Amino acid sequence: TYIVSDTELDVTVDEPETSEPADVETPNSGKDIPNTGSSDMVNVALVAAVVSLAAAGAVAFRKVK
């Protein structure tokens, strides 16, 4: 998450003064989070960008006969 602001914000975190850590239970019914494959698309986009730049460079430096 990014926040754009024209003024500096106070980002200090106030820690609660407790001697014991709070026990927080997360609801989990035994199901794992499924892989959506979105991280795979990042690699595909990167390869497409490199190929595109290589093709643009070849066209830019092509000798005129």
Rank of each mutant, 00 (worst) to 15 (best):
P27T: 07
D10G: 06
P27R: 04
D10F: 14
L9T: 07
G37T: 04
A49N: 01
P16C: 04
A58E: 07
V42S: 03
P27Y: 15
V59Y: 12
V13C: 06
A60G: 10
A22Q: 14
E20G: 04
S19H: 02
T12C: 02
K31R: 08
D32H: 09
I3Y: 06
K65I: 06
V13Q: 05
A54W: 14
S52F: 12
V11E: 12
T26K: 05
V59C: 13
E20W: 03
L9A: 06
A60L: 14
R62E: 02
V64G: 15
T26V: 10
P27W: 08
G37L: 07
E20C: 04
S5G: 00
L46W: 13
V13E: 03
S52N: 02
E17T: 13
L53T: 09
E17G: 10
K63N: 11
G37K: 01
D23F: 03
V13L: 01
Y2G: 11
E25Q: 12
V51S: 11
T12Q: 11
T26C: 12
N28Q: 08
T36N: 10
A55E: 01
V64Y: 04
D14E: 14
E15C: 00
P27D: 04
P27F: 15
L53Y: 11
A45W: 15
T36R: 00
V24P: 08
S52Y: 03
S52L: 15
S19L: 13
D6W: 11
S5H: 09
E17I: 13
V11G: 08
G37P: 07
T26I: 05
E15W: 09
V44Q: 03
E17S: 04
A55G: 08
K63L: 13
N43D: 11
E17W: 09
